Computed example of a mutant assay.
Amino acid sequence: MTIASIVFAVLLAVVFLPAGVAMALAVASMRQRAAHLHYSVTAYRGVGVLAIAGALGVLAGMVWWPLGAAAGIGLVLFMIGAVISHLRVGDGVAEYAPAIGVGVLAVAYVVTVFGAHL
């Protein structure tokens, strides 16, 4: 692991762990977001569990890089899904720009992980 990939992993965990926990616990703001995106609370809880798994996966990647790489790729796909979900309900750029930004961070993580090991 490079210093860059460790920094990216920590940043991704800082973003995804609290958000994932809030989604999995179905706090009020997350229930509202789920309704806005036309997801059931149960489905949104599942999305939260995936966010937690991705965050833990990139952290575990500091010990075993293939797991981190897989988790990073999963987070990139996760953010693509988030953008699609926002576009599907007619949200503007302001609503899906954070997902693009975090997705770019996840891509940077994956690139640094593979760059260090291939």
Rank of each mutant, 00 (worst) to 15 (best):
M1H: 11
S5D: 15
I6W: 14
V7Y: 08
F8W: 10
V10M: 03
L11W: 10
L11K: 11
V14H: 00
L17A: 11
A19E: 01
G20L: 03
V21W: 14
L25I: 09
A26E: 11
A28H: 13
A28W: 08
R33N: 13
A35I: 01
A35K: 14
L37K: 09
L37Q: 12
A43Q: 14
A43E: 10
Y44E: 07
Y44G: 09
G46Y: 08
G46Q: 04
V47W: 12
V49I: 15
V49A: 14
A51L: 13
A53R: 02
A53Q: 01
A53W: 06
G54F: 05
G57C: 06
L59W: 06
A60Y: 04
G61P: 00
G61D: 13
V63R: 04
V63L: 15
W64N: 06
P66L: 08
G68Q: 02
A69K: 05
A69S: 13
A69I: 13
A70L: 15
A71T: 07
G72T: 10
G72W: 08
I73Q: 03
G74K: 07
L75G: 01
V76P: 00
L77Q: 10
G81R: 02
A82M: 00
V83I: 15
I84M: 08
L87A: 13
R88I: 08
R88N: 01
G92K: 12
G92L: 09
V93Q: 06
Y96A: 00
A99D: 12
A99Q: 03
A99I: 10
A99P: 07
A99L: 05
I100T: 02
I100E: 02
V110N: 10
V110R: 06
V111P: 02
T112E: 14
V113Q: 15
A116I: 01
A116S: 15
H117R: 13
L118Q: 13
